[in-house]
Design a protein around this nucleic acid. Sequence first.
DNA 1: CGTCGGGTTGAGAATGGTCAACTTCAGTGG
DNA 2: CCACTGAAGTTGACCATTCTCAACCCGACG
Lengths: 244, 244
Amino acid sequence: MQALRSIERSGICGEPIACVGCEARARGVCGALAGDQLVSLSRVSDRRVIRPGEHVGRAAGESESVSNILSGVVSLAKRLPDGRQQIVGLQFAPTLVGRPIAGDDAIEATAAGPVRVCTIPRSAFEGVLTANQAFERRVLSQALSQLDETRDLLVTLARKTALERVATYINMVVRHARPVGSPGEPGEIPLPLSRGEMADFLGLTIETVSRKMTELRKAKIVDFANAASLRILSQTRLDQAAGG
Amino acid sequence: MQALRSIERSGICGEPIACVGCEARARGVCGALAGDQLVSLSRVSDRRVIRPGEHVGRAAGESESVSNILSGVVSLAKRLPDGRQQIVGLQFAPTLVGRPIAGDDAIEATAAGPVRVCTIPRSAFEGVLTANQAFERRVLSQALSQLDETRDLLVTLARKTALERVATYINMVVRHARPVGSPGEPGEIPLPLSRGEMADFLGLTIETVSRKMTELRKAKIVDFANAASLRILSQTRLDQAAGG
DNA sequence: CGTCGGGTTGAGAATGGTCAACTTCAGTGG
DNA sequence: CCACTGAAGTTGACCATTCTCAACCCGACG
């Protein structure tokens, strides 16, 4: 969780050094920012690395904040009073974690694997939200995308079989692993979640996830030597197994 | 689907007649509008009544639009290629139905019971979104609320038992039936969804919903003469049955 | 009075959960 | 280098919840 704060500017056009080449600037909400706004935001923002299993945005009693994911995967989990829990979303770079505007939440954002984030106090974030309408539009757009994704996940959990859910998850990871143009068959794809986290995400148990992974392997749809990565043997049949 | 278009203004302060006393104006996104903006929006908006089972916002080959629910309940459903379907959200007044900004959707918004809406062409809606930042903020806020609700539903479907889901649904209806201050034990509460729709919403089958309703009745937690409404006998035990 | 849609109830099947044993592998210390 | 340990993963046997299929009920409506 080392703080890499940088408030220097790069020489050329006044863009803060921390923001040069940043994923959030290229494709995330910060793309709407320039000049003074970017500089003043970068002055209060804080780049850090979150270790696997640590919470995002609640580092050591600090106040409410919003974080931009720069790399890695963050899981959002909710918990029922009796302890049952469910991962309600996985977020990849470059998306926002944390409430952009006030509201009760009770969501746990946890780093699945190492995650780099750029954290901004919520007060500062809200300031930019109000000062820059293009920024607010991007936040709205991102919220709507997350709504869509959450609804898709809802259908998956409510209507798909265990095998379909596992296949759907693998497909989801594959889509994020190959950023844009998809080369036919890549090599080993790292799985960001452990079996237990997959179970939490897919509304299953560890045992069922394990069984269905084995089933996919025995059906020669995927193959893997270790549990944490795999290789797609037939994308077609994987899509089929994912059931839409 | 009668069109009740009204572009007249009320005498007093220039508020369009159609907007006087409107739910969407009191608590919905239109609360951010006044004067000319409200007038010009009301000029292109269209109040109509949607009959049960009809789709919202796709009336007879019209272009893309956004609708504000004035009264009634709208269900949002997604469908898998093989026909399995799932209701991914229920929306009550005064919330927006339809994509505020572009994006692919494939969601079916259907009236569950009679619904009154105020429909606005998306182009006009986007115009207001850009012209009035308070309006955009309300849209963002509503999107975030929907995200929260969808995540709650996700946990319910992924982790709760059939009985808990049915009880959770009843509680949800109760909360919307008693708008604000809840008088202890009200009378008959109408259930907006049929058993089949409840099943689609809760990720169950009609038979299981029916059985669990019976179970709740036999346990004297609720009571009902007809299938379409019920009476709460013990809110405490209902909360308990809903499991958080 | 018959039919139709929606709802309820029952019996049996099946999917996924539970509990428990076992394997694998990384890390540790002899 | 090897044995030990603990965490993560796999596999198996059994069980429970929910689904499937089918019959039946009931009220609305012709």
